[in-house]
């Protein structure tokens, strides 16, 4: 891959925030001898880098990237819509792998990761669905159409929402873990249908976007936004897993003895 020369990359808010954040972190480390609260955990570094990349990538998407040849300015939605689609797929693929891992090993951490990856995937899927609708209105003339890609994406999203809803309704930990994993594997079939829908049924939605299908000036912007989403996804996944662990520990903790009032 030919990297662009450094001077070709403009100074954007993302880079400015990144440089400032690094300076502030270094200063706080030196002065206080401990890490600041927003770097309390190793994954917070992923969140910080993801935030900077997102600011950078979205600024480039709105300002620096050229207009799309046929979609004009509306083509800039691509830099939000496509990375969210990629990371939604990554999240649900990981959900399936964690689910298989749990059913094979029975490790409780994997069960918590199934829940976490599915939930983060649903959040990114909501971004995907809503930005897709906003993309569709000016290009297709409608917010929604019963297009195979749109329908399969909605079914995929609803399937994983269903798995999470089912999980929240079950109280027995073993039953909850087993049914969540089984449901997640079942829901992943809808993701496979979603991915291949544009190949199986050629309809309104275009084929999958990749660096090979967009003009070279758009590739860098698309990559920065994709990496931003990847870093943010990693941060959200690990943070959500820590939350699931904390909630599980709270639920499994023995009840505190009731306070006795002296006579």
């Amino acid at each position: 891959m030919d990297l662009p020369p450094l001077e070709a990359l403009p100074l954007t808010p993302g880079k400015a925030v990144a440089v400032l954040a690094i300076l502030v972190i270094a200063l706080l480390n030196v002065r206080a001898g401990r890490r600041p609260w927003y770097l309390a955990r190793w994954e917070d570094a992923f969140g910080l880098v993801g935030l900077c990349l997102l600011l950078d990538g979205q600024y480039m998407g709105l300002v620096d990237a050229p207009r799309e040849r046929m979609m004009g300015e509306v083509g800039r939605i691509l830099y939000v819509h496509v990375p969210s689609a990629w990371l939604t797929m990554v999240a649900f693929t990981l959900t399936c792998l964690f689910a298989i891992g749990f059913l094979v090993t029975g490790w409780r951490s994997l069960d918590l990761l199934v829940e976490s990856a599915a939930e983060v995937g649903v959040a990114l899927g909501i971004v995907l669905q809503l930005t897709g609708m906003l993309f569709a209105r000016p290009t297709w003339g409608v917010y929604w159409d019963w297009d195979p890609r749109l329908v399969s994406t909605a079914v995929m999203l609803l399937s994983f929402i269903g798995v999470l809803t089912l999980r929240s309704l079950l109280t027995d930990p073993d039953q909850r873990a087993n049914l969540t994993s089984a449901g997640a594997i079942l829901a992943t079939t809808s993701m496979i249908v979603t991915y291949f829908s544009v190949r199986w049924w050629r309809s309104l939605h275009q084929m999958q976007s990749s660096p090979d299908t967009v003009a070279s000036p758009m590739v860098l912007v698309l990559r920065i936004n994709a990496f931003a989403m990847l870093f943010l996804f990693t941060w959200l996944l690990v943070r959500r897993w820590r939350l699931a662990r904390a909630l599980a520990a709270r639920d499994e903790a023995p009840p505190l003895p009731s306070a006795e009032v002296p006579a």
Binding site: M71, G72, V80
Partner: peptide
């Protein structure tokens, strides 16, 4: 060529 559409771009971001 689709013209305008900044409202949708802003809304998506």
């Amino acid at each position: 060529v689709v013209t305008g559409g900044w409202t949708y771009v802003t809304a998506a971001y």
